Amino acid sequence: MDPLTAAGVLFGAVVAVVAAPVVLGAAGFTATGIAAGSLAASMASAAATASGGGVVAGSVVAGLQSAGVAGLATSTTAVVAGVGGAVGWLTSAAAALF
């Protein structure tokens, strides 16, 4: 792997892990719960309506809320870093074409 690609992968992984809590908070998945009037509130409402009155344990909304309250689990951090690294690799590969 050339140095530019390696740097792109590393940068993408780090940015993804650092940005994840910021993005969750901005969406309304906060440490104190789901923020009223937020995207998270809309998602929770839709999920509750679809399931007949509550957000189902293990659903996307429940997982995002858990991450908003407690932070990312080690396994989730690894996945986020992997996705960020893949994006960094794709970005560096695209930059090499131009």
Rank of each mutant, 00 (worst) to 15 (best):
Met1Gln: 11
Asp2Pro: 12
Leu4Asn: 13
Thr5Lys: 08
Ala6His: 05
Ala6Val: 11
Ala7Gln: 08
Gly8Phe: 01
Gly8Thr: 01
Gly8Met: 01
Phe11His: 10
Phe11Arg: 08
Phe11Tyr: 13
Ala13Val: 01
Ala13Thr: 01
Ala13Lys: 05
Ala13Ser: 11
Val14His: 05
Val15Asp: 05
Ala16Lys: 07
Ala19Thr: 06
Ala20Cys: 09
Val22Met: 11
Val23Gln: 01
Val23Arg: 03
Leu24Tyr: 09
Leu24Ser: 00
Ala27Tyr: 05
Ala27Cys: 13
Phe29Pro: 01
Phe29Arg: 06
Ala31Glu: 15
Ala31Lys: 15
Ala31Met: 09
Gly33His: 11
Gly33Ala: 13
Ala36Gln: 08
Ala36Trp: 02
Ala40Gln: 02
Ala40Phe: 02
Ala41Thr: 07
Ser42Glu: 15
Met43Ala: 15
Ser45Leu: 13
Ala46Lys: 02
Gly52Asn: 01
Gly53Trp: 13
Gly53Gln: 06
Gly54Asn: 13
Val55Tyr: 02
Val56Trp: 10
Ala57Trp: 04
Gly58Trp: 09
Ser59Ala: 02
Val61Asn: 05
Ala62Ser: 05
Gly63Val: 01
Gln65Met: 05
Ala73Arg: 12
Ala73Asn: 10
Thr77Asp: 00
Ala78Trp: 09
Val79Glu: 10
Val80Pro: 02
Ala81Leu: 09
Ala81Ser: 12
Gly82Phe: 03
Val83Cys: 06
Val83Trp: 10
Gly84Trp: 13
Val87Gly: 10
Val87Lys: 09
Leu90Met: 14
Thr91Asn: 07
Ser92Glu: 05
Ser92Asn: 01
Ser92Gly: 03
Ala93Asp: 12
Ala94Asn: 13
Ala94Arg: 15
Ala95Gln: 10
